[in-house]
Amino acid sequence: MKKKRVNSSTFLLLITIGLFILMYAAGMIIFKEKGFAKPQMFLNLFISNAGLIVIGCGMTLVMITGGIDISVGSVTALVCMLSAYAMENKGMSAFSAVGISLLIGLAYGAVQGALVAYLEIQPFIVTLAGMFFGRGMTAVVSTEMISIKNELFLKWANAKIYLPIGTYNKKGIFQQAYLYPTVIIALVVVLLITIMLKFTNFGRKLYAVGGNRQSALMMGINVRKTIFLAYLLDGFLAGLGGFLFCLNSCAGFVEQAKGIEMDAISSAVIGGTLLSGGVGTVIGTLFGVLIKGTIASLITTQGTLSSWWVRITLSALLCFFIVLQAVIAGAKRKK
């Protein structure tokens, strides 16, 4: 009766990590000529996806409670547009832009959280409205693209942090690998959220609410407050992630970050988070993001395939993981 079984969610996580290693290794072997094996390539995964990593963390939180947030993409777009507008059209400082971004995220989190938690409206609908609202507001601010030329902002955006590893280029000069502060921020967020989920009362409440809402209520957990806070935190992270995204793109425009919510959801699912709630880790989501990044890199490096193949491959992968989760759940039920 006291068997040591591999927890099924650990199992899924191992598959995700294994898949990532496999894909990346394959890329390193196949595309060695094109520089895939360079350490910079690996770091680029983090650099181009820093925003997504942070957004993914937030998404994981609400998914653990059994909810979802499809507004994150539009929050990102709105944050970028408003930051650009504030800095370029209103001459505000880069610090103000940070403040604005976080405030927008919090506002989103508060409103959506209140509607989901206290009015018990389906998260899908609420965040759908949020998505519409955000996209529309971005266009209301400006229908034209705004490039960011703020000095301090650009300084942040271009501040390379060099690492003591690298490769030699064709001329024999040692090129150090680098990353940006956005990556550090993203990884710190992952660490903090992981600690929160495992070691704080609030984190465990998230799992409880997602596992069985009725039971959590009966056990004396304030379910509504827990869900509200989950969305609040998710909104905050969406704002933060949006700002990191902005540091990447250095511009604000209407079509920005379209589809990023689906990337976040896919990353979470691939990373082992169950949409039904109660199960999930941000480490898993991190690897989900890395997998998505690897696919994009592989296809870009290959060069001839159209970019639609990224979407199709990601969908096929998502399909695989979804089916895998279903098969495991089915096997569990039979017992």
């Binding site: 609908i125 759908l128 409205a129 519409f132 609202f133 996209r135 529309g136 209301v140």
Partner: peptide, 14 residues
């Protein structure tokens, strides 16, 4: 404008 349309839909929906 069609880009701004979603804002109103969102409010009404809510």
């Amino acid at each position: 404008s069609s880009d701004q349309l979603p804002v109103y839909k969102a409010v009404v929906v809510v």
